[in-house]
Simulated assay, not measured.
Amino acid sequence: MKLVPLSDRVVLKQCEAEETTKSGIILTSSAQEKPQEAEVIAVGPGGMVDGKEVTMQVKTGQKVIYSKYAGTEVKLDGEEYIIVRQSDILAVVE
């Protein structure tokens, strides 16, 4: 199956959480903070959203940082994805 976002939605795959701190301390899974960095898997077509024209500014394959509590988590074929609005994406990581 394939996720195809509608309107100004973007499908993201979250990057792996850090398992050790910079000083070398190993974190348990419950202590790991959920990363806000993700890879763009699919991008909607944009168009008219709430009466305004929306042009999509992200592309498939880019790494982005998104809002902490944004989006809807979806599990498909054993993989976890997050579907967010383009406005919930804060920055592109280059």
Results as ranks from 00 to 15, higher is better:
Leu3Asp: 04
Leu3Tyr: 08
Arg9Ala: 11
Val11Leu: 08
Val11Thr: 09
Leu12Phe: 09
Lys13Ala: 08
Lys13Gln: 15
Lys13Leu: 12
Lys13Thr: 10
Glu16Asp: 14
Glu18Lys: 04
Thr20Glu: 13
Thr21Trp: 01
Thr21Phe: 00
Lys22His: 00
Lys22Phe: 00
Ser23Val: 09
Gly24Asp: 03
Ile25Glu: 01
Ile25Leu: 08
Ile26Ser: 07
Ile26Met: 02
Leu27Tyr: 02
Leu27Trp: 00
Ser29Thr: 09
Ser30Asp: 13
Ser30Cys: 03
Ala31Trp: 03
Ala31Ser: 13
Ala31Arg: 04
Gln32Val: 05
Lys34His: 09
Lys34Leu: 10
Pro35Leu: 02
Gln36Ile: 06
Gln36Thr: 13
Gln36Glu: 12
Glu37Gly: 06
Ala38Trp: 01
Glu39His: 05
Glu39Pro: 01
Glu39Gly: 01
Glu39Phe: 04
Glu39Leu: 05
Val40His: 03
Gly44Ala: 04
Pro45His: 00
Gly46Phe: 01
Met48Ala: 11
Met48Arg: 14
Met48Thr: 13
Val49Glu: 08
Asp50Lys: 15
Lys52Asn: 11
Val54Thr: 14
Val54Leu: 00
Met56Trp: 05
Gln57Val: 07
Gln57Lys: 15
Val58Glu: 07
Lys59Val: 02
Lys59Met: 09
Gly61Ile: 12
Gln62Ile: 04
Lys63Gln: 12
Ile65His: 10
Ile65Pro: 00
Ile65Cys: 11
Tyr66Ser: 06
Tyr66Ile: 02
Tyr66Arg: 07
Ser67Cys: 10
Tyr69His: 14
Tyr69Ile: 03
Tyr69Asn: 15
Ala70Pro: 09
Gly71Leu: 06
Gly71Ala: 06
Gly71Thr: 05
Thr72Pro: 01
Thr72Ser: 13
Glu73Ala: 14
Glu73Tyr: 08
Val74Arg: 09
Lys75Ile: 12
Lys75Thr: 15
Lys75His: 07
Asp77Trp: 10
Asp77Arg: 09
Gly78Asn: 11
Gly78Trp: 09
Glu80Met: 11
Glu80Asn: 14
Tyr81Gln: 04
Ile82Phe: 03
Arg85Ile: 01
Gln86Trp: 01
Ser87Lys: 15
Ser87Asn: 13
Ile89Tyr: 07
Ile89Val: 10
Leu90Cys: 05
Leu90Lys: 14
Leu90Thr: 11
Ala91Val: 00
Ala91Arg: 15
Ala91Ile: 03
Ala91Trp: 05
Val92Arg: 14
